[in-house]
Computed example of a mutant assay.
Amino acid sequence: MIEWSLIEGVYELRLGVEPCNEIGTTMLAALERFLDQVDTESAHALVIRSTVRGGFSAGADLRELYEELRQRPEREHEDALREFIDRIHSVMDRLDMLPLTTIGVIHGICFGGGFELALTCDILIAERSARFGFPELRLGIIPGFGGIPRLRRDVSNAVVRDLLLTGRSINAKKAQQIGLVSQMVPTGEGLRAAMATARQATKFDREAAKTCKRFMKPLPVEELAQEKEHFIRLAQRPVLKLALKKFVESDDPRPYLP
């Protein structure tokens, strides 16, 4: 379940899709509904957080993707992938460019598509339990929700290469050291810190804040388009289908962990 509220100029978007906020058509539709209803005139800030114990998000809903590819004729795979990726990119871009100060609260797992969702935020606050990673190469693909251009916008290319080419995850302390997150707080303190930051953001002139965000955080349009095409090409190969089958049939309770 995904819920949201608006109190004193601050939206709180709560992600609560068990087991760990996998991003599939259910979450995508909920995010679209939120974006269609968000009032950017009344609000100044948005806090995005997870209410599930496992973490912020384990990434894309790989079981749903497996069933989609398994049930459709192979000649329809590209159209199905492109339709989903286009919707995802539209949502991610809208979140990225919202004329609000957006703050992500990260605890536990923040992998793959969940990491890409977090990267749309202006400010990230990580609890000590947080771990960030891009395990996509293990599946024979690359991040497809805009992760590479957005990560390159925020940190050095050396960090991007390390995360992607090794598949390793980093903890909250390392994420703060490389400038990915602005604050690291004790486990359970993320929401409090985020709300304090959001309230600070409400004190400023709206037009000045929106202008500052547009200037400092441009959308990497060309790179996003390139990433999308690379993802769609790689995702049609047999290697992904075999990796998804292995993932779906795994008896590991947390098969998304590196």
Rank of each mutant, 00 (worst) to 15 (best):
A193D: 04
M195N: 13
R161M: 13
E189K: 07
Q177V: 12
R161S: 11
P186G: 02
A158W: 10
V160C: 07
Q183F: 10
A193C: 04
L180C: 01
L163Q: 00
L165A: 13
G167E: 09
M195I: 10
R161W: 12
V155I: 07
L191C: 10
P186L: 06
N171A: 08
S169R: 07
N171Y: 05
V159E: 08
P186K: 04
I170C: 06
S182T: 12
K173Y: 15
R153A: 14
P186N: 01
K174W: 11
T166E: 03
N171L: 10
G167T: 10
T187M: 15
I170T: 07
M184P: 11
T166D: 02
I178P: 00
G188T: 04
S182L: 15
Q177N: 07
K173D: 14
G179A: 05
A158E: 11
R192F: 11
G190V: 00
R168C: 12
R161V: 10
L164P: 05
G179L: 06
G179Q: 03
R153C: 09
G179V: 08
V160D: 05
G190T: 01
Q183R: 09
M195S: 07
I178V: 05
V160F: 04
G190K: 00
V181I: 07
V160G: 06
A172S: 03
Q183G: 09
L164M: 05
S169P: 08
L191Q: 08
R153L: 15
T187F: 07
V181E: 00
V185R: 00
A158N: 06
D162Q: 14
P186Y: 03
Q176Y: 12
P186E: 06
R192Q: 14
V155A: 03
K174L: 14
R153D: 15
S182N: 13
L163R: 04
K174A: 13
L180Y: 01
K174V: 12
A158G: 07
L180E: 02
L180K: 02
D154A: 11
A175F: 03
K173V: 12
L164H: 04
V160K: 05
A172R: 06
K174H: 12
L163D: 02
D162C: 15
V159R: 08
L180R: 02
Q176N: 14
V181R: 01
V159H: 08
V181F: 00
R168V: 11
E189Y: 09
R161K: 11
V160E: 03
I170K: 04
E189G: 06
S182Y: 09
Q183L: 09
N171I: 08
R153Q: 14
T166I: 05
A175E: 07
A158S: 12
G188Q: 01
L165W: 14
V155D: 01
G188E: 02
N171S: 11
G188C: 04
R168I: 10
A194W: 00
V159N: 02
